[in-house]
Design a protein around this nucleic acid. Structure first.
Length: 645
RNA sequence: GCCGUUGUAGCUCAGGGGUAGAGCACUUCCUUGGUAAGGAAGAGGCCAAGGGUUCAAAUCCCUUCAAUGGCUCCA
């Protein structure tokens, strides 16, 4: 037999017999290592650890700690779930069962049987029982006709449908115990790797994601190689739930919903409104410095405007139905851009006026499907940190860059670092349907955007079929506490609406020319941004943004008068403060202030009253000591200045 | 919009065919206490809404509304 050269990640090269598996290679290094090997990466491709290697290769041994290792582990767990289901409910039919970011799911057609969350325990136990059998995951290449025959005999129509799309020669089965599945692999060596199982939830899911298809039962689960890891995971999930903006928003009295107001229509309580005020102050100042001017527009407009803008055919389903007055239809605005275009068009423009930057915190209404509403992250009334920039082609790059820099500046202030910049492009197949049919302009503007991103050295991912109908965009993707992905902010190019609105400026040659338009909303909408910030800060807003910045805690009622004196001084300095005048002990007052996540606590008693000072405690416990009111206000101002720069 | 689950006090939840319970919060009183929970008493509910079954419904059934986990969709 021939020899092969295996290169390990540390660069070392070892010789093995051809046909040696990654697992055997691991064993040759150490038994302990081999026990932890879940899969292997051979020349960059993830494969079974037991697959024989027949050529010289770069080899990475994948463990649970590796992302691909977890992926393989969970994918194999989905097969174990299926095996358990088949044992418990003979005759169930299987859809697909992939690994996801945290765990796996399997789509099941239970036929007439009703599977409920009460069956979770039974299923978990069965999975653990089967795991203990230590069944090997065995790979087998099969011909397409054999594969179809197998599933026809078994009576699994979904698998047969999946097989139709596969080519003969690339089909593999994996078996463990009594269960065989159509699967590309790879898998863990044996079921005994799985030591802890948790079925997490149950949901309906359309077969192949199409709402016209039958709805299957999707069972979500997660597994671990150690019981302790499952416990840690469950604890983490509990913590994430506490961070959920819907929970914090209620606890901290930021916002609420009311049945009489309507779903997706948040009410801002005083503390929520205070945060909005801070955000707007900050945005208006920043935008002013960046050369924006502010405009204002009404909340409704005639149908004709949305026909002109081209929004109506794309957007009608997600707009509130129109009101009809004297035969004219009026829509609640779902976006601010057409209004801004009209403002641009209201006065003649010269090239000397450009770029024109119109900013507005504009409130829009979108009739999102009821099932899509999600706390503050998906709502039906939203106030956007909107602006539109009208510029020449020559100015485009600089403007686009400036907008990007603005984003980065904001992200620094808010400490936003876990995001992905997504360069969202059109899909050429959908020109004329989802996207304006101008292939050259798409190419041109997408190239411009890419160039800006590359020259600015900003990391990004390119994604097709995510653009706006009027042009490409950059989306900032973030994740909520419970792991749901959202677009926080967008920066969009628009080459279509200027044409539709017949917008123009007079260029140097005294000719009419169309401006390019940028749409941008770096601070998203108040709803989504505050929802995000609640989770991001876990409710502990920084001093500049906190609805209530500090609370004065008199040691006893005897110091109430002094506390009020302090309050008045602070109010004169525009500091948002209040007094806890309850007849409670200081420990209790501190605890309650901590629960409300107030950034600062001022303790005042005999000593402070005598010296005309306050004792300052930061949220979390840090003692800033005793200071005069003057040094406190100085300290606060400095702190805020640091936070905003 | 579709499928599953849930809806009991301001909040978190228990209960469950015979006219409602806890903890926290709230109010009052006692206490005047120095860096994460002092004590006592009190008040607070058409058990989401509507209909049905029943001698009797918060409890069982149906419809609606809302929330929630997904799917589809999206800033």
């Amino acid at each position: 037999m021939s020899e092969i050269k295996i290169t390990l990640p540390d660069g070392s090269v070892k010789q093995y017999q051809s046909g040696t598996s990654a697992l055997q290679i691991a064993q040759s290094i150490s038994e302990g290592l081999a026990r932890n090997i879940i899969a292997a990466k051979v020349n960059g491709k993830v494969v079974d650890a037991t697959l024989p290697v027949n050529m010289d290769a770069d080899l990475v041994l994948l463990k649970w700690e590796d992302k691909e290792g977890k992926n393989t582990f969970w994918h194999s767990s989905a097969h174990l779930l299926a095996e358990a289901l088949e044992a418990l409910y003979p005759g169930v039919k299987f859809g697909i069962g992939p690994a996801i970011d945290a765990g796996f799911y399997y789509d099941i057609d239970f036929g007439d049987h009703k599977f409920t969350s009460e069956d979770f325990g039974k299923l978990e136990n069965k999975m653990l029982e089967l795991a203990k059998n230590d069944s090997k995951y065995e790979r087998k290449e099969v011909s397409k006709s054999d594969a179809i025959q197998y599933f026809t005999e078994k009576g699994d129509p979904y698998k047969i449908e999946l097989l139709q799309d596969l080519n003969d020669g690339e089909i593999t089965f994996y078996s463990q115990g009594n269960f065989t599945d159509l699967c590309r692999g790879p898998h863990i060596p044996a079921t005994s790797f799985i030591k802890a199982v948790k079925i997490t939830s149950l949901a309906g899911a359309y077969w192949r994601g199409n709402e016209k298809n039958k709805q299957l039962t999707r069972i979500y689960g997660i597994t671990f190689p150690k019981k302790s890891e499952l416990d840690a995971h469950l604890l983490m999930m509990e913590e994430a739930k506490k961070r959920d903006h819907r929970v914090l928003g209620k606890d901290l009295e930021i916002f609420c919903f009311d049945d009489d107001v309507g779903p997706g229509l948040p009410l801002w309580l005083p503390k929520g409104a205070a945060i909005i005020e801070r955000l707007e102050e900050f945005a208006k100042k920043t935008e002013k410095e960046a050369g924006y001017v502010r405009v204002k527009s009404p909340h409704i407009a005639k149908e004709s405007m949305y026909i002109k803008s081209g929004h109506l055919p794309y957007y009608q389903d997600s707009m509130f139905p129109p009101m009809e007055l004297d035969g004219t239809k009026y829509y609640l605005k779902a976006m601010n851009c057409p209004h801004h275009h009209k403002i641009f068009d209201a006065t003649p423009k010269s090239y000397k006026d450009l770029p024109v930057r119109y900013a507005e915190y504009g409130t829009c209404y979108r009739y999102e499907q009821s099932g899509e509403l999600f706390g503050l992250m998906r709502v039906r009334s939203l106030t956007m940190n909107d602006a539109h920039i009208y510029c020449t082609k020559a100015q485009f790059e600089q403007e686009f860059k400036a907008v990007n820099n603005l984003y980065l500046k904001y992200f620094k202030v808010f400490g936003i670092d876990k995001y992905v910049m997504r360069f969202s492009k059109h899909d050429p197949k959908k020109l004329g349907q989802k996207y304006i049919n101008s292939p050259e302009l798409w190419k041109e503007t997408e190239d411009m955007v890419r160039n800006v991103l590359i020259s600015a050295g900003i990391p990004y991912v390119e994604v097709e079929d995510e653009a706006a109908f009027y042009g490409p965009k950059i989306d900032i993707q973030i994740w909520s506490a419970i792991g749901r992905e959202f677009t926080l902010a967008t920066n969009q190019v628009d080459f279509a609406q200027a044409e539709r609105f017949d917008l123009s400026f007079i260029n140097e040659k005294s000719e009419k020319e169309r401006p390019l338009i940028l749409h941008r909303a770096p601070l998203s909408t108040h709803e989504r941004f505050i929802g995000f910030l609640l989770e991001h800060y876990a409710g502990k807003f920084p001093l500049w943004l906190a609805p209530e910045q500090l609370i004065i805690l008199p040691i006893s009622e005897k110091y109430q008068e002094y506390a009020e004196k302090v309050l008045n001084v602070l109010k004169k300095h525009d500091i948002r403060a209040l007094i806890d005048d309850r007849s409670e002990k200081t420990g209790k007052k501190i605890r309650d202030a901590e629960m409300k996540k107030l950034p600062l606590m001022l303790i005042v008693g005999e000593k402070e009253q005598a010296e005309n000072t306050v004792s300052v405690r930061k949220q979390g416990g840090e003692d800033l000591g005793t200071m005069s009111l003057e040094s406190l206000t100085d300290w606060i101002n400095k702190e805020i200045e640091t936070q905003l720069n």
